[in-house]
Simulated scan of single mutants.
Amino acid sequence: MRFTVLGGCGAWPAVGQACSGYVVEAEGFRVLVDPGYATLPRLLARMRADEVDAVLVTHGHPDHCADLNPLLRARALADVPAPALPVYAPPGALEAVLALDNPRMLAGSFVSRDLGPGVPYELGPFRLDVFDLPHHVPNAGLRLGAGGRVIAYTGDTGPSAALVALAEGADLLVAEATYPERVPEEDAPYLSSALDAGRTAASAGAGHLLLTHLWPDTPAAPALAAAAKSYDGPLSVASAGLTLDL
């Protein structure tokens, strides 16, 4: 299983950066996770738009889904339109981004499917388990497994007992870490710090912790230092172009 970072900026894309966006591949099947601001050009540097097999969106904030619109345009307006793309998201999460176009523009370019906890989903070779996690809007934590390997991704989340279950024994935990050590009081129920992510990774026995969604234009060193206070495994920050083979 291969994991590639398209971007890891929180909130908006800083100069030369992109917001949340990741590609997970196994057995030739490609899943795009969270196509946030500025991720599509980075995706197209690696593959054609019609080579994406499925899209997963953790929640409806535009730094996690805005580039779904140009991705669907690229597929719908091609000389030979691509088959309908399965797009999974929490109920209602895609209403705003899909409203950017007249429905006729994107007709037939995608199939919308609701994400929620319960029975696992099957996407090509992947098993997908979904966890409800607290954020300002409904947010789906994602656990993707294939070939005996597991990637867990928090989306954006506040504190939750479900985080350890999401990340339990995962080979890679991709964790939102907007702030290094302290989340401002007004956002504390809805966002996480690198310190929080380190504690989750340690409690869950995750094999590698990848910190993402850092506030734009902030250095990586304080986040890495905060996570290392409680997690002593492999540790890195999501930067565009980073690829991990599991």
Score class of each variant (00 low, 15 high):
residue 3 F to D: 01
residue 5 V to W: 06
residue 5 V to D: 04
residue 8 G to W: 00
residue 13 P to I: 04
residue 15 V to C: 12
residue 17 Q to C: 13
residue 19 C to T: 13
residue 19 C to V: 05
residue 20 S to T: 15
residue 30 R to N: 10
residue 32 L to R: 06
residue 42 R to E: 10
residue 46 R to F: 14
residue 47 M to T: 12
residue 51 E to T: 07
residue 59 H to P: 05
residue 60 G to R: 03
residue 64 H to Y: 08
residue 64 H to R: 07
residue 66 A to K: 11
residue 67 D to F: 09
residue 68 L to T: 10
residue 73 R to T: 11
residue 75 R to S: 09
residue 77 L to G: 12
residue 78 A to H: 12
residue 81 P to R: 10
residue 85 L to Y: 06
residue 92 G to W: 05
residue 92 G to S: 12
residue 93 A to N: 03
residue 99 A to L: 12
residue 105 M to L: 15
residue 106 L to R: 07
residue 108 G to I: 11
residue 111 V to M: 13
residue 114 D to N: 13
residue 115 L to D: 00
residue 115 L to Q: 00
residue 129 D to E: 15
residue 131 F to L: 02
residue 135 H to C: 11
residue 139 N to A: 00
residue 140 A to L: 03
residue 140 A to K: 00
residue 143 R to K: 09
residue 150 V to C: 13
residue 154 T to M: 01
residue 163 L to A: 03
residue 167 A to N: 02
residue 173 L to C: 07
residue 175 A to C: 14
residue 185 E to H: 11
residue 190 Y to T: 13
residue 191 L to G: 05
residue 195 L to D: 07
residue 196 D to V: 05
residue 201 A to N: 03
residue 207 G to Q: 07
residue 209 L to Y: 01
residue 210 L to P: 03
residue 211 L to G: 02
residue 215 W to I: 13
residue 220 A to L: 09
residue 222 P to N: 05
residue 226 A to Y: 02
residue 227 A to L: 08
residue 231 Y to V: 03
residue 232 D to V: 13
residue 237 V to C: 05
residue 244 L to S: 08
residue 246 L to C: 09
